Amino acid sequence: MLSWLWHSSGLRWFVVLVSGGFLGKLRWFPSMTLVWPQRCRRRWLSAGNESRSEEETRRREDFDIEVVIGVGSGGADDWRRIVKEKAVVFVDLRPSKFNFSSSLSFLDLSRNSFTSSMILQWLSNVTSNLVELDLSGNQLNGEIPESNKLPSLLESLSMKSNILEGGIPKSFGNACALCSLDMSNNSLSEEFPLIIHHLSGCARFSLQELNLKGNQINGTLPDLSIFSSLKILDLDGNKLNGEIPKDIKFPPQLEELDMQSNSLKGVLTDYHFANMSKLDFLELSENSLLALAFSQNWVPPFQLSYLGLRSCKLGPVFPKWLETQNQFLDIDISNAGIADMVPKWKDTYIHGISSSSSSIAIEKQQLNR
């Protein structure tokens, strides 16, 4: 039941009290933002004990509307003490009662004790305008049911740091507004080509960031060039394996690619990196069976600020294409099988030293000056 304890045309502050069996006995959790009324700007107010990152603070520091969410036995008097003389609203969040379909845009339910991924289905039914949803740091477990559909306007979904298994349902690939999907630090074990296939609906046009770091995803790399808007792809710390096909390409808009600490093998060539003019961050370290072999006079279409090829097969000749890179801030090509003269580069010899503009690690190799 939704009861307004106080209301006026100038309503700016209000508090939501969560109750009902659906949420159960949870601890207090950080606030969410309710975009209502829309004529006001929004401001973030944290009611939890956890400190928020500077990035999150900056992202929400312009907000004016404040929504504080709590769970437990606290009554009206407790809430009045929290907000003093500000407006107070009590809301019953039982599935049969709760409906903010025209107003709720940002919802942060992170760091709680939710266990069922069916919460996605429930939220989709009651929040048609949801744009950002954070379910990270809960206890969501098992496979995400294929029946779970995302809200049609959802742009950002984080389910990182849970205990989810299996893969990503096809319904996620049909979320046409989805820009950011963070499923990192779970126990996903599906083959990567199947995951990509499931995301190849209309989401392939909108998705800009895909974070699958720290799972158990296996299989080799499929063609990713169909993801025309993808800027960040993080596959660090999975179980990717198998030969990389010679005819696949990466997304043309990709800026950051992290595939370190897998078991990829085969050869990456200039063909794979064609048309990648925006690539800035490339991390392939700890793929000991992965080789990079580029044409002798190849000039990459990109300028990297970071390169990690530690323990990959890069030598024995010092890669000439590296000399075309003038924006490096950090480069790690240690233990990459190089046994060659180190060229004079960026006004200094790169010999495992740090200069004013770059940090370069190339130790554990037979380098000569």
Rank of each mutant, 00 (worst) to 15 (best):
D223K: 06
S206V: 00
E132F: 12
L107K: 09
R94G: 08
E132R: 11
L221S: 06
S187D: 09
L109W: 05
L157V: 01
V91G: 01
I217T: 00
S113F: 11
T127I: 04
L188A: 06
L207S: 12
A203M: 05
P145C: 07
N162W: 08
I217M: 00
V126T: 13
P193G: 09
P145E: 00
N99S: 04
I168T: 07
D182T: 03
E190K: 13
S101H: 08
T127N: 09
T220I: 01
G142V: 08
A175W: 05
R94W: 09
L199V: 10
E155R: 14
Q216P: 00
L104F: 04
S158P: 01
N185C: 10
L221W: 14
N174Y: 08
K213M: 10
A175H: 02
K97R: 13
I119L: 08
S116H: 10
F205I: 15
A177G: 06
R94F: 02
E190L: 04
C202I: 10
N141K: 15
N99P: 07
P222G: 14
S161G: 03
E85A: 13
N129V: 05
N185S: 15
L194T: 09
S101P: 07
F98S: 07
N99R: 11
I196Q: 05
P169G: 11
V131D: 12
G219E: 07
P169H: 07
N112M: 15
N112Y: 12
N174C: 15
K149P: 00
M159E: 01
L109Y: 06
L224K: 12
E165W: 04
S96D: 15
V126W: 02
K97S: 13
S171G: 09
G137Q: 02
K84M: 13
F100A: 11
L178N: 13
L164C: 03
L207I: 04
S117H: 02
G142S: 08
K170F: 02
E146D: 00
D134M: 13
S128L: 07
E85M: 06
N218P: 00
V89K: 09
S189Y: 01
N186S: 07
N148D: 15
S103R: 06
S189H: 01
L123F: 11
K97N: 13
M183D: 04
S206G: 05
L212M: 12
F205W: 01
L181W: 02
L164G: 08
T115G: 08
C179T: 15
I168N: 12
L107W: 10
D108S: 12
E190I: 04
L135I: 15
K84I: 09
S96F: 03
T127S: 05
K97Y: 13
Q208I: 03
L207F: 11
